[in-house]
């Protein structure tokens, strides 16, 4: 499954970068993620609960940040296992300053599914991915707003 998109967030690239590299913030904004623990440098243990179309499940696995270029780009490698199937995704993230207070965050990559997810979830998967992406950016904005209030 192809994953592509971009979104403009109301903060500087530096600020967005810091938030993306902070496991607590990331856990908060990523839909379904209930816990994100730093295991070693750039490697997180991730636990997520997601409902995808007719199937829902608890996922456990790793997220790894590769080739980080501060405030510019990184690659996210995710491998999640669950009773209903496994997901592995390889996503390139790019940050681009639109203005001093605005950053375009774009991503492009692919996700592969197996098991029940592939068998019964595939049909609705891209729709679900879109929803999750929208939620992610919405949460990110909310988090930015919350931080601004503080």
């Amino acid at each position: 499954m192809e994953l592509n998109g971009s979104y403009i967030l109301p903060a500087s690239t530096q600020k967005i970068w810091e938030m993306l590299m902070n496991p607590d913030t990331l856990a908060k904004v990523t839909p379904g993620i209930s816990r994100l623990e730093l295991e070693s440098e750039n490697v997180y243990k991730a636990i997520a609960e997601v409902k995808i179309g007719p199937v829902s499940g608890k996922f456990e696995g790793k997220a790894e940040v590769l080739h980080p270029v501060a405030a510019e780009s990184f690659t996210l490698n995710v491998h999640q296992n669950s009773k209903i199937g496994n997901v592995s995704a390889h996503i390139k993230m790019h940050l681009k300053a639109v203005s001093e207070h605005e950053t375009e965050l774009s991503f492009a990559g692919k996700a592969h599914m197996s098991g029940l997810l592939a068998r019964t979830g595939n049909r609705v998967m891209s729709g679900v991915a879109n929803t999750l992406t929208k939620q992610f950016f919405q949460n990110f904005e909310d988090e930015l707003a919350a931080k601004a209030e503080v």
């Binding site: 007719p54 592969h112 599914m113 197996s114 592939a118 068998r119 019964t120 595939n122 049909r123």
Partner: peptide, 14 residues
């Protein structure tokens, strides 16, 4: 099948 050999319609819903 998808490109990884997963059956993408392996149920009566699909």
């Amino acid at each position: 099948f998808d490109e990884n050999g997963q059956i993408t319609n392996g149920s009566y819903m699909d």
